[in-house]
């Protein structure tokens, strides 16, 4: 496979996954805040800040009072903002276009159709009362695109590259979402003295990654910081946990890297290292330094993306 085209496929996977996470995050945060327990967690500003934190931290640095319609428009449909869902879908489409001859007609056509739908989405309706419909439409469509990726492509290098994009992005997004909600819980503690351990934000967090029901099933307890972080970071059974993503990333990178023991400066090496480090870690191990632990993971995961680029795409 051409290095340039591999790069396209990798980013197609990443942008698709990214748009889904941002859509889901908007949806869950907005709607669960409506009947949240504390005044702060119900506050619009608090919710809007949380959304911007995940979409693009830079935007928050200005520190102004946020306008709800503007924030929703920026994250959802603003073509000028690189972090908007519209831009992500458009980037996914452009990357798919650059690799058009390698992917199935069904997959290409579905991405193209989604891109057209988002581009032509009624902006006024979206910011007034279309948030639920729009974000649900995005998550449903991305899920269906993943099915097309799995069901219509050869499970070869092309597939492995796309899946690497998807899982690397998933790990990155999930850790960002965890980071954001962890910060929200800290802010709540400062404001109202609420306990970080039993904060309502943990429930929101689970819903943001669609694992609330399964977490309840697994632990049979009300979510606390420990159980939620254990579930979302270290539990390999949870489909959106960092551990699960790492396992998948390691599996798919083996399609590309045939060396049994990869060289220490490679993406394959870093991924293996991260996986085994976390496989034998317990949540109790990181109890004292949760903040540092999460921040380190954010850093390491973005490094995986950079190394991928160097190892596989830089030839072009």
């Amino acid at each position: 496979m051409l290095a340039r085209v591999a790069n396209n496929l990798f980013w197609m996977g990443r942008y698709l996954e990214r748009s889904e996470h941002i859509a889901r995050y908007m949806n869950v945060n907005y709607f669960s805040s409506l009947d949240a327990p504390s005044e702060l967690s119900q506050s619009r500003q608090f919710v809007l800040r949380s959304m911007l934190f995940v979409a693009d931290e830079e935007e928050l640095k200005v520190g102004k009072e946020l306008d709800e319609r503007k924030v929703l428009f920026d994250i959802g449909l603003n073509p000028e903002k690189q972090f908007s869902i519209l831009s992500s879908i458009q980037n996914a489409q452009q990357n798919a276009n650059g690799a058009r001859d390698l992917i199935s007609t069904e997959l290409y056509e579905s991405i193209n159709t989604l891109n057209r739908t988002v581009k032509n989405y009624d902006k006024d309706r979206f910011v007034k009362n279309g948030l639920f419909d729009f974000t649900t439409m995005i998550t449903a469509n991305v899920a269906s695109l993943r099915t097309k990726i799995r069901g219509t492509l050869l499970h070869d290098e092309v597939y492995a590259i796309i899946m690497l994009g998807i899982y690397i992005e998933r790990a990155n997004q999930v850790i960002r979402i965890i980071n954001s909600k962890y910060n929200d819980a800290l802010v709540e503690k400062v404001n109202s003295g609420a306990s970080v351990t039993t904060s309502y934000e943990w429930t929101t967090l689970l819903k943001c990654v669609q694992t609330y029901d399964m977490m309840r099933r697994y632990y049979r307890k009300i979510p606390t910081s420990n159980t939620v972080l254990d579930f979302l970071i270290l539990n390999p059974v949870c489909p959106r946990s960092i551990m699960n993503s790492l396992n998948n990333i390691l599996y798919y990178i083996s399609f590309l890297s045939k060396e049994e023991i990869p060289h220490k400066d490679t993406a394959a090496f870093l991924i293996g290292k991260l996986k085994y480090e976390h496989q034998y870690k317990t949540i109790e191990d990181v109890q004292g330094g949760l903040k540092t632990f999460i921040e380190k993971l954010v850093e390491d995961l973005s490094l995986v993306g950079e190394k991928m680029d160097k190892d596989y795409f830089s030839l072009y």
Partner: peptide, 25 residues
């Protein structure tokens, strides 16, 4: 796609000893 072959741009190709190569992963 119909032929099942790679679609390349000029920058994907490379020449060495009068042979043409494409830059793959």
């Amino acid at each position: 796609k119909q032929m099942g072959v790679e679609l390349v741009e000029g920058r994907d190709l490379f020449i060495e000893n009068d042979f043409v190569y494409m830059k793959t992963i």
